[in-house]
Amino acid sequence: MFGRLRSIGRRTTSEGTEGRARETAGKERKRTYNLFEAAAVYVAACAEDDQERIDEAAAWVSPEALSFGVNELACRAVVALARERDESPQAVARALLGLPAASPAGP
C-alpha cells in the first residue's frame, strides 16, 4: 500500500514538473521590472530623446509607480548635485531649470 502511494506521489510530482516545464518551454518568461529601474530608463531615454525606450519603460510599471520613481530619482539627483557643488538643493534645482536664484526670505 505504501509503495503504491509513493509511486503515485512520484508520478504526480514528475508530471507536475514536466507540465510546468512544457508551459514555460514555449513561452518567453516575462520579466518584472523594479519601479526605480523603470524610472532610470525612462529619465535617461527622455534625456536622449529616445521615444521608443520612453514608451518601453513607461509600460513596465503603472503610471503612478513611474511618477513616484521619477520623483525619487529627481530628488536624489538634486541632493547629489547640491553636495557636489556645495550649494542648497533649492539653488541646484532652480539652476537646472534655468530659473533665477531665489531671493532670500525677508523677516
Rank of each mutant, 00 (worst) to 15 (best):
L99P: 08
D49I: 14
A91L: 05
Y33A: 08
R29D: 12
E48Y: 06
A93G: 02
R20L: 15
L73E: 09
T13M: 11
C46P: 03
G69Q: 06
E64H: 13
T32I: 15
A77V: 14
G9I: 09
A101K: 03
L35N: 09
A82T: 14
T12N: 14
P100A: 08
V92M: 03
A40N: 09
R6V: 10
P63T: 02
D49V: 12
T17L: 10
I8Y: 15
E18D: 11
P63D: 00
P63M: 14
K30S: 14
L96I: 11
S103W: 00
L81E: 08
S14L: 03
P100S: 13
P63W: 02
D55S: 15
E56H: 11
A47W: 10
L73F: 06
E23N: 14
R85Y: 02
D49L: 05
W60M: 09
F36A: 09
G106I: 00
I8G: 13
N34K: 14
L66P: 07
D86E: 14
A80H: 06
V70G: 02
F68D: 05
Y33M: 02
G98V: 02
R85I: 05
G69L: 06
E52M: 10
T13D: 08
E64P: 04
M1D: 08
A91N: 06
E18L: 12
E37N: 05
P100L: 03
R20T: 15
V92W: 01
A38I: 00
L96H: 11
S67I: 01
E72R: 09
L66M: 15
R11Q: 13
E28Q: 14
Y33S: 04
E56Y: 10
Q90K: 14
N71C: 04
G19K: 10
A95E: 04
A45Y: 05
E52Q: 13
R10V: 12
D49E: 07
P100K: 10
K30D: 15
E72Q: 13
A91S: 13
A102V: 11
R22I: 11
V43P: 01
T24V: 15
N71W: 11
G106A: 10
Q90N: 13
V41I: 11
A21P: 06
N34C: 09
S67K: 11
G16L: 13
T13E: 15
M1W: 13
R6H: 14
D50G: 06
T13A: 15
P104Q: 10
D55F: 07
G19W: 05
V61T: 01
R94T: 00
G69S: 07
R29P: 06
E23M: 09
A105N: 03
A65W: 04
A105E: 13
V41M: 02
E87F: 02
A58E: 08
E23S: 03
A77L: 10
K30N: 10
E23C: 01
R53E: 10
A74N: 07
E28C: 09
R20H: 10
A105T: 06
N34W: 07
G98W: 01
N34R: 12
L66E: 12
E48N: 08
V61Y: 03
A74K: 00
V43T: 05
D86S: 05
G9E: 13
T12G: 00
R83D: 05
R31H: 06
